[in-house]
């Protein structure tokens, strides 16, 4: 049984974007805050802290979830993937990212990392989604700038249905 008392700081070991990392935290620290402030992975954004907006979506053991509804202590020993993992080391965008640029699928870019991570998970499970399926997954994210059309077009391009 693992127990961390409220005022106790504990070391969390995890794999972040393929690399073993660790940092100390209290039990109540949200994963979103932990990633950004303890591990320096600021690509994951915080938009609502109640699980609606989707900005903070990351992959935990390959599955997309809200990092604001997850505690840092819960990812002990797990693999977390964030938007920083998508482009190659020399900055080359992957196909999904490139499709976002091609289709003007972002403006302020704040919601974008969460959307990219959701579809990184979803497209791995369903590489050829219909437009309805794309919209179903995208409806788990709020974007205020684009009106969503460019995002749908980008995902269609990335999945070869455009």
């Amino acid at each position: 049984m693992r127990r961390v008392n409220r005022d106790q700081r504990t070391r969390i070991n995890l794999t972040l974007n393929g690399r073993a990392v660790s940092a100390d935290t209290e039990p109540r620290m949200l994963l979103s805050d932990f990633l950004r402030h303890a591990l320096g992975a600021t690509g994951t954004h915080v938009g609502c802290e109640h699980g609606v907006c989707g900005c903070c979506t990351v992959l935990i053991d390959g599955t997309a979830g809200r990092s604001c509804l997850t505690l840092a202590v819960q990812v002990e020993g797990r693999a977390v993937r964030t938007v920083e993992s998508l482009a190659s080391a020399d900055g080359k965008l992957n196909a999904l990212q490139q499709a976002f640029q091609n289709n003007h699928a972002l403006q302020c870019g704040f919601c974008t990392p969460g959307i990219l991570m959701s579809f990184t998970d979803y497209l791995a499970k369903n590489p050829k989604p219909s437009e309805a399926e794309i919209c179903e997954v995208l409806s788990g994210h709020l974007c205020r700038c684009t009106g969503y059309a460019g995002i749908v077009a980008a995902i269609k391009e990335a999945t070869g249905s455009k």
């Binding site: 900055g91 965008l93 990212q97 091609n102 972002l106 704040f110």
Partner: peptide
Amino acid sequence: VRRKEDPALLSGRGRYADD
């Protein structure tokens, strides 16, 4: 012209105030 802003924002390399 495609946006020059995009590659950084798509890679988690945006520099927002809290970053």
